[in-house]
Amino acid sequence: MSVVGECLVAFIFGTVVGLLVQRSRFCNTAALRDAILFKTFRNTKALLVAMMILTIGFTTFITFGDGNPMHFDVGLNQVVGLFLFGIGMVLAGACTVSTWVKTGEGNIGALWALLFTFIGMFLFSLLWSYNYWPPAPAAMTGEPNLEALQLGYSNAATLQEKYGIPAIVFGIGQTLVLLAIYRAILRKERSQSQGDVSNS
């Protein structure tokens, strides 16, 4: 596909996502924060449903060698980076999606968060240019590199290749785990509503 075609597809996809997220008030930050702080799971359930559909969809196509999985080495930087991100999104009250969506609704606080996300990225680029960690994509080998705190590259496709078991089998296993979490949330909500009724 041409560059213009890719950008057009991405823009159409983004537009539909922006519309649906705006109309549903879905928020990834709330999916984690509300579950932790307030024991409410409106957004968490939506997140889990999406992850179940995606796991089955992606691993089905990966089984047949189709699709475009993300390809880069992973390691300690994913844990530390998302830890910082997790704190940041709760403090800012928005994640990467909701900053764009709330900005589209006229929320100046979200626009401010976006601006400082960009500044945070630029500050990181200065630090990276000093210590060159984590390794640049061109320097990645796919193999563990413990000196650089990297564990290499592994996903459903590499599992299929290594064990000779179709990727979809692993995908079904992951989906069942997500389903068990979803059902546990439903049970929790039922017990909460029964508690509310008996208290009233």
């Binding site: 993300m70 530390v80 980076g81 991100f85 940041g88 800012a92 994640c95 500050l123 990181f124």
Partner: peptide, 22 residues
């Protein structure tokens, strides 16, 4: 809070190569 949160999000995304969506 938004300023600190934004900076942490931007720094964290680049350190991890991924955001919450990815």
């Amino acid at each position: 809070l938004i300023t600190i949160g934004g900076l942490l999000m931007g720094f964290g995304i680049r350190l991890a190569f991924v955001c919450n969506v990815s």
